[in-house]
Amino acid sequence: MATVKFKYKGEEKEVDISKIKKVWRVGKMISFTWDEGGGKTGRGAVSEKDAPKELLQMLEKQ
């Protein structure tokens, strides 16, 4: 499965696309949330040019 790689608060992170729940556009950035388990929700953002095609497809479906 595809993953999204991004930096959050200076830390490199990687999230499996299948865990992503919500995707939206903020200017030229793609923001998203995912389920971290245990009732926690993670947040992240990646530039439109660095976003994997699967993430962009999720954005178009909404």
Rank of each mutant, 00 (worst) to 15 (best):
M1A: 13
M1G: 09
M1Q: 13
M1S: 14
M1E: 15
M1D: 08
A2C: 12
A2V: 13
A2G: 15
A2L: 05
A2N: 10
A2T: 11
A2Q: 14
A2I: 12
A2K: 05
T3N: 05
T3S: 07
T3I: 04
T3H: 08
T3Y: 05
T3E: 02
V4G: 00
V4W: 01
V4I: 10
K5D: 01
K5S: 03
K5C: 04
K5L: 03
K5F: 03
K5Y: 03
K5W: 02
F6C: 04
F6S: 02
F6H: 01
F6M: 01
F6I: 04
F6G: 01
F6R: 00
K7L: 15
K7Y: 11
K7H: 15
K7P: 12
Y8K: 02
Y8W: 11
Y8F: 07
Y8G: 01
Y8R: 02
Y8V: 15
K9F: 13
K9D: 11
K9T: 01
G10F: 02
G10V: 01
G10Q: 03
G10R: 02
G10Y: 02
G10P: 00
E11N: 06
E11H: 12
E11D: 03
E11S: 05
E11Y: 08
E12G: 04
E12H: 06
E12I: 08
E12N: 08
E12T: 10
E12S: 13
K13M: 11
K13Y: 09
K13W: 06
E14C: 06
E14S: 05
E14A: 06
E14N: 06
V15A: 04
V15Q: 02
V15G: 01
V15T: 03
V15H: 01
V15C: 06
D16T: 09
D16N: 12
D16L: 09
D16G: 09
I17Q: 04
I17G: 02
I17K: 02
I17M: 05
I17L: 09
S18G: 11
S18N: 06
K19M: 12
K19W: 12
K19F: 12
K19L: 07
K19P: 01
K19V: 13
K19H: 04
K19D: 14
I20F: 05
I20S: 00
I20D: 00
I20L: 10
I20K: 00
I20W: 01
K21M: 14
K21L: 09
K21S: 10
K21I: 15
K21A: 15
K21P: 04
K22G: 08
K22N: 14
K22Q: 14
K22C: 15
V23D: 00
V23T: 05
V23E: 00
V23P: 03
V23M: 06
V23R: 01
W24N: 10
W24T: 07
W24A: 05
W24P: 00
W24I: 07
R25V: 11
R25T: 15
R25Q: 12
R25F: 07
V26I: 08
V26M: 04
V26P: 09
V26N: 13
V26C: 15
G27R: 05
G27H: 07
G27D: 15
K28Y: 09
K28L: 05
K28F: 06
K28W: 03
K28E: 15
K28M: 08
M29H: 06
M29S: 15
M29W: 06
M29V: 13
M29G: 13
M29R: 10
I30S: 00
I30T: 02
I30G: 00
I30C: 07
I30P: 00
I30K: 00
S31L: 04
S31C: 08
F32C: 07
F32E: 00
F32Y: 01
F32D: 00
T33R: 14
T33W: 04
T33Q: 09
T33S: 15
W34A: 01
W34K: 00
W34I: 02
D35V: 07
D35F: 04
E36G: 08
E36A: 06
E36W: 10
E36V: 12
G37F: 15
G37N: 09
G37I: 15
G38W: 11
G38Y: 12
G38R: 09
G39R: 05
G39K: 05
G39E: 09
G39I: 12
G39W: 13
G39C: 15
G39Y: 15
G39P: 10
K40P: 13
K40R: 05
K40M: 10
K40S: 09
K40N: 11
K40G: 11
T41M: 12
T41D: 14
T41C: 15
T41A: 08
G42I: 10
R43Y: 04
R43M: 03
G44W: 12
G44T: 04
G44D: 01
G44K: 03
G44M: 07
G44Y: 08
A45N: 15
V46F: 02
V46H: 02
V46K: 02
V46S: 04
S47W: 03
S47N: 11
S47F: 15
S47Q: 11
E48D: 11
E48L: 07
E48G: 05
E48S: 04
E48P: 10
K49N: 11
K49D: 11
K49R: 08
K49M: 09
K49P: 08
K49G: 14
K49I: 15
K49F: 11
D50M: 09
D50Q: 15
D50T: 11
D50H: 10
D50N: 06
D50C: 14
D50R: 10
D50K: 06
A51M: 04
A51H: 02
A51K: 01
P52L: 08
P52V: 09
P52N: 09
P52A: 09
P52F: 03
P52M: 02
P52K: 02
P52E: 03
K53I: 11
K53T: 07
K53W: 11
K53F: 14
K53N: 13
K53L: 06
E54H: 05
E54F: 11
E54N: 06
E54G: 09
L55A: 01
L55V: 10
L55D: 00
L55T: 01
L55W: 02
L55M: 03
L56M: 14
L56S: 08
L56H: 13
L56P: 01
L56Q: 12
L56F: 06
L56N: 08
Q57R: 07
Q57W: 07
Q57D: 08
Q57S: 12
Q57M: 09
M58Y: 14
M58A: 08
L59R: 01
L59F: 02
E60I: 10
E60H: 04
E60P: 07
E60W: 02
E60N: 08
E60L: 03
K61C: 15
Q62N: 07
Q62D: 15
Q62K: 01
Q62F: 05
Q62P: 12
Q62C: 14
